[in-house]
């Protein structure tokens, strides 16, 4: 089994890796042998990533990246490629929420979400493309959300961006399949992270009633799906969305 999930020699970049799902993904890919570069928006976050990677004995480091900034993306991908080699596993995890009912939604709330959650994936993927096509191998895995498929009141912006990732990934999968690059999506349901800790007790209880497995998911349960797709076990899967949501939405 070990050899099947050996990611030795792979260079993985995980955006939004300072906490929650991103951190779990970074740790799991690292434990499987990959060199991991985790990104955070602040120096403090980047240092925290470096610290937990070192503690876990994982090669790599944390760096500062603002995924909403085109120049930041280009310089980071260039620097990582120079220091570690071409990125072979890209995990687009960074994301934010700006919930509001549509009738009250401000343009900034819409634009922030599309820029940070969707445009960033276009830019990150594009920046990694040359290295992957040259190497004739690669994995691009983007973290969507169950609400991209099910919809959710107050999240028109978030759901639109998260559904957008799916269409993007399917199209890119068709474009670069011939180069042995797979492009997939993992769509988490409600996972126990800072993002969902903001929910009220009542919202939480309502949610649980609709989850057949009767609990929130753990970040590691998303990371497991990402690891599977990044590893040789997932080699023949592309353009696909894996839903990891305890059954709350069955696609």
């Amino acid at each position: 089994m070990d050899s099947l999930i050996n990611l030795q020699g792979e260079i993985a970049l995980v955006t939004g890796a300072s906490r929650g799902i991103g951190r779990s993904i970074a740790e799991m890919l690292g434990k499987a042998g990959a060199t991991v570069i985790g990104t955070a928006t602040s120096e403090k976050g980047a240092d925290a990533i470096s610290a937990y990677l070192t503690e876990a004995g994982v090669a790599g480091k944390g760096i500062v990246l603002n995924v909403a900034d085109k120049d930041s993306i280009e310089s980071v991908v260039k620097a990582v490629t120079g220091d570690f080699g071409a990125i072979s596993v890209l995990v687009n995890n960074a994301g934010i929420t700006r919930d509001n009912l549509l009738m009250r939604m401000k343009d900034e709330e819409w634009d922030d979400i599309i820029t940070t959650n969707l445009t960033s994936v276009y830019r990150m993927s594009k920046a990694c493309m040359r290295g992957m096509t040259k190497a004739k191998k690669g994995r691009i895995i983007s973290i969507s959300s169950v609400v991209g498929a099910s919809g959710n009141p107050g999240q028109t912006n978030y759901a639109a961006a998260k559904a957008g990732l799916v269409g993007f990934s399917k199209s890119l999968a068709r474009e670069i399949g011939s180069r042995n690059i797979t492009v997939n999506v993992v769509a988490p349901g409600f996972i126990d992270t800072d993002m969902t800790r903001e929910l009220s007790e009542e919202q939480r209880n309502n949610l649980l009633q609709n989850i057949p497995l009767s609990r929130l998911g753990q970040p590691g349960e998303i990371a497991g799906a990402v690891l599977f797709l990044a590893s040789p076990l997932g080699a023949y899967i592309t353009g696909e969305t894996i839903h990891v949501n305890g059954g709350m939405y069955m696609a």
Binding site: R130, T133, E175, I176, S178, R179
Partner: peptide, 11 residues
């Protein structure tokens, strides 16, 4: 060559 090949060639 396909269209992707020609893009890579130019790059």
């Amino acid at each position: 060559a396909d269209s992707l090949d020609t893009v890579e060639l130019v790059m």
